[in-house]
Amino acid sequence: MFGWMNENKSASIAKDRLTIAIMSDRQHLTEFPFMDELKAEIMEVVKKYVGVNNVEIKKEIEGEIEALSIEIELSRD
């Protein structure tokens, strides 16, 4: 009944903004589909030298430069 009044209300603004933001978030996740394999391989290599718990790879953007930062969590034992 009040549908026509709601067009420019904040809920519909929220829906539009969210739809776009989430689409771009998901794209980011699928940009590097090889990420899990890459992690596993890095882990194997590092394991030859030292114990590893986990490897995290993040994409970072600084100005013009895009970088992958690799964080290797060592195991204590």
């Binding site: 009040f2 709601n6 209300k9 904040s10 809920a11 519909s12 829906k15 989430i22």
Partner: peptide
Amino acid sequence: MVQNGEMLKSEDILDIL
């Protein structure tokens, strides 16, 4: 708030997620 158009409806959230 949903009735006033100030809060997302569950259906909208389902669509998005």
